[in-house]
Amino acid sequence: MERIVYLNGEYVKETDAKISIFDRGFLFADAVYEVTAVLNGKLVDNAGHLARLERSCQELELPLPVSAEQLTQIQKQLVKLNQLEEGGVYLQLSRGNAGDRDFAYPVDTKPTLVLFTQARALLDSPKAAKGMKVISLPDIRWKRRDIKTVGLLAPCMAKQAALNVGADDAWLVEEGYVTEGSSNNAYIVTNDGTLVTRPLSDAILHGITRKSLLQLAEQAGIIIEERNFTIEEAYKASEAFVSSATTFVWPVVEIDGHKIGSGEPGEIAGILRKIYINNAISSAE
């Protein structure tokens, strides 16, 4: 069945969706995006994703043409039309078609709003069961990583560099400290059981799954430290893992060839994945 996608107020077949070559999302990556997980045909943590979308738009002076409530209805309609039970809904908003290429923000341009669904297995994930291998790379991204833009070439390069050497992903390092993964937030667990992750700033994406995980970890009695950590500290950690909207929690069992802990998925990562999924299923809308 051909997917139905949303484009500027219309639900159309994916092969019929057309965007101008002068769209600023295409020419300048002048666009923001969000991905909301879907479990059992329902949206997970969606309010947080839409709140972050609004913040990204404000930071870029990018007008959002519909309300959060309208976006939610569009997402739910796409899930229904595509009979999606498990996967995600991708949302992208660009500044639109400026009529020609020019660096300055155009005046009175109508934004381009696109949404589509992606079916994928979220609950039964091989990487969740076996763990990931990552490598460390210099963080060459721009300085406003808190804005979720579509300018993702540097993360694509990092992920491909990892795949080229037989790893699954990359952790990015800046001024000696881990910022985050190529498309996820990064965590370690110290030998005394403390969960460590980098604090929020312009240097990392303010992960919606990260926020929920830290709340759930605190409720579970896990000690949390939001501080910078080095890649060398990660090598010596008892556990490591990542989080994102569609991975939830994936353990990291090797970094730069260094076995993390026992070299198997850790206990705390397993606990957090389980309680996050349980919470996501019960609170999905």
Rank of each mutant, 00 (worst) to 15 (best):
P111V: 07
R101E: 11
K130Q: 13
Y105G: 01
K18P: 04
P251D: 03
V134H: 09
I223D: 15
S67T: 01
G87R: 03
K42C: 02
I231Q: 01
S182Y: 08
S125E: 07
V173E: 13
S244P: 03
K148C: 01
V178K: 02
R55P: 13
F241P: 04
R141T: 05
E175T: 04
G257T: 05
N82Y: 13
I268D: 10
R227V: 07
D108E: 01
D202F: 05
E85R: 14
A98P: 14
A240C: 01
V89F: 07
G87T: 00
Q83E: 05
P265V: 10
Y235M: 02
I222M: 06
I140H: 14
V242E: 11
E14G: 13
S212N: 06
T247Q: 13
S244T: 00
K80G: 11
V165F: 07
S262A: 14
V5D: 11
A162T: 01
A129C: 09
P106Q: 06
M157L: 15
G221K: 08
G87A: 06
K80P: 07
G261Y: 07
S125G: 06
A104T: 13
E232M: 10
K211M: 08
R52A: 08
T190G: 12
Q215W: 04
D108P: 13
L216H: 06
A170I: 07
Q77L: 03
E285V: 14
L205C: 10
S212A: 00
E14H: 12
E267K: 15
Q219E: 15
A68R: 13
T190K: 05
A186C: 09
N228W: 11
I281A: 00
V89P: 01
